[in-house]
Amino acid sequence: MLSDSTAYFSIIHPFDAYLSPWDSAKPLPTAEQLNMLLPTSLQLISDVKALESDCLLQLRHLDDDAKTVVEFLKLQSRKIDMVLQHVMAKEQYEGTRYQGSHFGGSGFAIASPIALEVGQIFQVTLHIKEELIAILCIATVQSCKQKALESSTTQLLEATPYVCELSFRVIQENDVEQLVKASLSLQQKQLKLRQQAR
């Protein structure tokens, strides 16, 4: 589990989370064992993102004369991203689908029609379409509270979902890195949109 000292920035952004209860009789997997649980499509996406990240680091050291090459490689990257988005859209993820509300390198929050038990452990697939992220991890429910309502009618209260916050228990280091980069990238996009709206 990530401690408070390793807490990361979290961003509000919709995404899909697929949760399967973890069998409490089974020990939690290590990060390496978790990697073996990855479906082929998620492994492919993970490998492509890692290669792309390494390549971009090397490109930063090129001088101005290499701008044409950089632009060409960015175009190739976008084409690959489009293919991978198609693969991700066709993927059947294991578990119950929940709508995510915010995420970061430490954990995420979802809306649930019922309260999830605090301390319950889940195997989770996070799918953040805009950033081409689909990762597998193990997470624990930290809190689960019913959303506050403007109206106090009982009928509305019963239909109000819970906001459940989960923290990562087992996650690959490069997946944490992906989530941190995605949160920063989405924050930049949100700031640009706000500036354009002024």
Rank of each mutant, 00 (worst) to 15 (best):
E173G: 08
K129G: 11
E130Y: 14
D65F: 01
A197W: 02
E177T: 13
D81Y: 14
L191I: 13
S5C: 15
R97N: 07
L75K: 06
A66W: 11
F103K: 00
S3V: 10
S20K: 12
L116P: 04
G119I: 03
L73T: 08
L84D: 05
G104F: 14
N35R: 10
T125E: 05
V124G: 02
S143A: 11
L166I: 01
E71T: 10
H13C: 08
R169W: 14
Q99W: 08
A50E: 03
L34H: 12
S46L: 05
K147Q: 12
K192C: 13
V180W: 15
K74Y: 01
G100S: 03
L184I: 11
G104Q: 08
Q142W: 11
Q99Y: 10
A89Q: 13
F103I: 00
F168Y: 13
L193R: 10
V83L: 12
Q43E: 02
R78I: 11
I135W: 12
E32P: 02
V118G: 07
Q123C: 08
I45D: 02
K192M: 07
Y93G: 01
P39Q: 01
P29T: 03
S20A: 08
R78A: 11
D63M: 02
L75H: 12
L157C: 11
L62G: 01
D63C: 06
P161N: 05
L149C: 13
S53D: 04
G104R: 02
Y162T: 00
Q99C: 09
L59M: 04
G105R: 00
E117V: 07
E150K: 06
K129S: 10
K129L: 09
L51R: 05
F15E: 00
I121R: 04
K26W: 09
I110R: 02
K74A: 01
H13S: 04
S152L: 03
L38H: 14
A109M: 07
K49A: 14
F108Y: 13
G95Y: 13
Q123T: 07
M36V: 12
M82N: 06
S143M: 06
L166N: 06
A139G: 06
R60I: 06
Q188K: 05
Y93K: 02
K67V: 08
V48L: 07
M1H: 12
Y98T: 02
R78C: 10
E32Q: 09
L126V: 07
Q172D: 09
S112E: 04
C144Y: 10
I138N: 04
M36W: 14
F122K: 00
W22E: 01
L2R: 06
E94M: 03
V118M: 08
I110Q: 00
L136G: 12
K129P: 11
S151A: 03
D47S: 08
I138V: 15
T125N: 04
K147Y: 12
Q188R: 07
L149H: 10
K90F: 14
Q58E: 05
Y18S: 00
A115G: 10
S10N: 12
G95C: 07
A25C: 15
Q172P: 02
D64L: 12
Q146Y: 14
V48Y: 15
V69H: 08
A182G: 12
I133V: 11
R198M: 06
V48P: 09
L157H: 06
N174H: 15
L38R: 13
E158G: 09
A109Q: 07
F108W: 07
A197D: 11
S106A: 13
K192D: 11
T125Y: 13
C137M: 03
H127N: 02
G119E: 00
P14L: 03
A7Y: 07
L73K: 02
A31Q: 07
S46V: 07
